[in-house]
Structures are given as structure tokens and as C-alpha cells.
Computed example of a mutant assay.
Amino acid sequence: MSTTSGYETVYDKPGSEWASGIAVFGGCALATLGIFQFFQGLSAALEDEVFVTTPEYVFKFDLTTWGWIHMIIGVVAVVTGAAIIAGKTWGFVLGIIVAVLSALTTFAFMPYYPLWALVILAFDIAVIWALSSLISRARTA
């Protein structure tokens, strides 16, 4: 497949469809993760009573601060996921970075909403695996 705009994407290069499928999965999962992060942040920023606070927690911030952190990561994740789906090569590395940042902030947020944090961490790990697999495959090809 060739592009008419003169820009080349990852999907324009010869390779297996399996690798492209992993990339699309990573992009979709990252965009979904971003939406989850955004709404989690919005809940924390608007309604502090939704989450239970833990006394004496090492990473204790005001819930509004946590909310803004999650909303910013969410927006960046959605934009990066869209870039991955579009096949932009810069999106793959940025996607791994965003997923790692998401995992770290979710881990620090875990005492406020443990079950949901585990779901988000699972998405983060899936995105990191998918994008790392594709980057690794591209390096060995």
C-alpha cells in the first residue's frame, strides 16, 4: 500500500500482517487506556468522595491533583494511540513511554481504587508488550 501524501507509515513497509495487527492492537489499547485514564482523572478532580483515601500513604496527593495527572496522561495516550493506528513510527516509542508513565501513576494511585488500578495496569502491560514486540521485530528484520 502506498500513500498519496508522500509520507511513509509503518504499514507501507513489507512485513507480516501479524505485526501490523499487533501495532493496531497496541494503538487501540493505548487509546482505550487514555479514555479510561481521562475519566478516572475527571472523577477524581470533580468528586473527591468517589475515592477512599488512605492515611499515611507515601504518594499522597490531593485527589484533584491526581485527577489532573490522570487527565493529562489520558489525553496524551489517546493522541499517541491514534498516531500508532495511523502507522506513525514516532508513536510506537512514545506509546511505550506513555504506557510506562501510566503504569507508574496507576501504581501510585492504587490505594484509592485498587481493583480499577489493576485493570489499568493490565492494559498498560498489554500495550507495552504489543509495541515492544513490534519494535523488536522491526529491528531484527
Rank of each mutant, 00 (worst) to 15 (best):
L121S: 09
F107Y: 11
E47P: 00
F36C: 03
S132A: 15
P14R: 05
T3C: 05
F59A: 07
I84H: 08
G34S: 07
T106P: 03
A31N: 06
L131H: 10
A44Y: 01
A138M: 13
R137E: 14
I128N: 01
S102H: 10
G15K: 09
Y7C: 02
F107T: 13
I35F: 10
V79I: 14
Y11H: 06
F39R: 09
D48A: 12
L121T: 11
S102C: 11
I69G: 03
A138H: 07
F123A: 02
E17S: 09
I97E: 03
T105L: 07
S16R: 05
T106L: 08
T53Q: 12
L63K: 11
G26K: 07
V24K: 09
R137Q: 06
T140E: 12
E8L: 04
F123E: 05
F59T: 00
S102D: 14
V10K: 02
T3K: 12
W66F: 13
A44N: 04
A29D: 11
A23F: 08
M110H: 14
V50N: 14
G81P: 02
A138V: 08
L115I: 12
A122K: 07
S133N: 08
G91K: 01
D12L: 01
A83P: 07
I96N: 13
G81I: 04
C28H: 00
W116E: 13
T4R: 11
L101S: 15
Q37E: 15
G91C: 05
D12V: 00
D12S: 09
W116K: 09
L30R: 06
F107G: 14
L101E: 09
W66V: 01
W116M: 14
L121R: 02
A126V: 09
A126E: 05
A29G: 03
V58L: 05
G74D: 07
G26A: 11
S136Y: 15
V79A: 10
L33W: 00
G74F: 05
G34L: 05
K60I: 00
F38V: 10
A83R: 07
L42T: 05
Y113S: 14
L101P: 06
G27F: 01
T89I: 15
T4D: 13
F51Y: 15
V50C: 02
A77T: 08
A103M: 09
W18T: 12
V93P: 00
Y7N: 12
I72Q: 02
L118F: 15
G74V: 01
D62G: 02
I69N: 06
A122H: 08
L134S: 01
L115W: 09
D48N: 13
T89C: 00
V78M: 02
A86F: 05
A82T: 10
G95E: 04
G81T: 08
I69R: 03
L131K: 07
K13A: 05
G87E: 01
L134K: 02
I22R: 15
G34I: 04
M71Q: 06
K13Q: 11
V93R: 11
L115H: 10
G74K: 04
L63T: 14
S132H: 02
S5P: 01
D124Y: 00
T53Y: 00
S20D: 15
V78I: 15
A141F: 10
I120A: 12
